[in-house]
Simulated scan of single mutants.
Amino acid sequence: MAEGGEDPQRLKKIAAAAYDYDNDSRWTDYWSNILIPPHMASHAEVVEHYKRKFYQRYMDPDLVVEPMSSTSSSQSARPSASTTNANEQQARSRSSGSVPRTAGPSATTGAANPSSVRWDQQTIQFSVNAWVFVIAVLAVLPLVPKNLSNRAYRLSFMGTACSSLYSLYALYGRPRAWNMQGMQVYFQSIVGAKDFIYFIYCLTFVTSNLCLKFALIPILCRALEQVAKFLRRNFTRSTIYRKYLEDPCVWVESNTTTLNILSSQAEIAIGFLLIISLLSWQRNFIQTFMYWQLLKLMYQAPVTAGYHQSNWSKIGRTVNPMIQRYAPFLNTPVTAVQRWWFR
């Protein structure tokens, strides 16, 4: 959420302009699939327009991309504008693996269809996240019967996994080719996405016999953030929202950083809990190893790196002096672990 009265869209446009498009292979594919006249492709404002549309699609769906002004093209190029938009829609359909829609008789009808699709996607995500939040709260309540609590625990992870998978499909589509090379390219494009990280996180626990209610904290934070964001955008005129939900939603959106810090702290703590669980009869070496691989990804992925690196730095400043003073024999294994971690 923007602070100090800054316009959120202005900040998003600055972020879109500062993005490194040249080092993103998706931009090359995106630009090559847009068919526009050569004399228009050389105009800087045209390139910037499509860069913002690319950024909106792959990075920030909330970015509002205004249509190109008529002054950016000459009179002779105007008849080809509708063809350009149609070609771009076809290119998007090909890259996402969907069937292109037939354009209606009016521009208004054609423009309304994508909006309705986005609305449907947002509504589905809101419904799933709201359901996950209720189920997760039910799972952590101490007075709930154990059998029901365990079911709610697993359903929370399953719901979040489905929500994350659907979000990945909506943003990145399907792989262009179902072969090894196509799958490798596809996974390289999504491996750093936050939804992919949450998907792997949920799979790690939904398939395990170990029941760690502490692991629901990141799930609750994610669901709460998504639900509050949807309510703030779509129910501002509702009397019930303004009376009961506006203040909590405003608090959630203004404390997104706090929720992310809490999630990262819980994720790191879960890693140590899994190591401790290796001493119990519920030990699971594969789950522990896979989860620490996921923590390593969280440490390196741009969407989560800031929070995890900050927390690990605090842990290092606390633990390293104690090791140097009371257990210097641990320096060798700690160094080996650090080499694996930063590899």
Results as ranks from 00 to 15, higher is better:
A2I: 02
A2W: 01
R10A: 13
A16W: 04
A16R: 01
A17T: 03
A17C: 01
Y19G: 04
D24F: 02
T28K: 14
T28E: 13
W31T: 04
W31N: 07
W31Y: 12
S32C: 06
I34Q: 01
M40Q: 06
S42Q: 14
H43Q: 13
Y50C: 00
K53V: 14
R57K: 10
V64D: 15
E66V: 08
S72I: 07
S74W: 12
S74Q: 06
S74E: 07
A77E: 11
S80C: 07
N85F: 08
E88Q: 11
A91D: 02
P100A: 07
S106D: 07
G110C: 07
A112K: 10
A112H: 09
N113C: 07
S115M: 15
S116C: 07
V117E: 12
V117I: 15
R118S: 10
W119F: 14
W119A: 15
I124Q: 11
Q125E: 15
S127R: 05
V128D: 02
N129W: 06
V134F: 08
A136T: 07
L138D: 12
L138F: 12
V140M: 09
V140D: 06
L141F: 06
P142H: 04
K146C: 06
N150M: 05
A152H: 01
G159P: 07
T160G: 01
A170L: 05
R176Q: 08
A177G: 04
A177L: 08
G182I: 04
M183G: 08
M183L: 15
Q184H: 12
V185E: 13
V185W: 11
Y186H: 06
Y186G: 00
Q188E: 15
S189K: 11
I190N: 00
K194D: 11
I197D: 01
C202T: 03
T204W: 01
T204G: 05
T204I: 10
L212W: 05
K213L: 12
F214K: 13
I217V: 14
L220F: 00
L220W: 00
A223R: 03
Q226R: 14
A228Q: 02
C249P: 03
S254Y: 00
T257S: 09
T257W: 06
N260D: 08
I261K: 14
L262H: 06
S264T: 05
Q265Y: 09
E267C: 09
A269M: 13
I270H: 07
S277M: 10
W281I: 09
W281L: 13
F285P: 04
F285L: 08
I286E: 12
F289Y: 10
Q293G: 09
L294D: 02
L297H: 10
Q300G: 03
A301F: 00
P302N: 01
T304W: 02
A305G: 03
G306S: 08
Q309L: 03
N311I: 08
W312D: 05
I315T: 05
G316Y: 09
G316T: 05
V319N: 04
N320M: 11
P321N: 04
P321E: 05
R325W: 10
Y326F: 15
A327P: 00
P328K: 09
T332R: 15
V334N: 10
W341F: 09
R343Y: 12
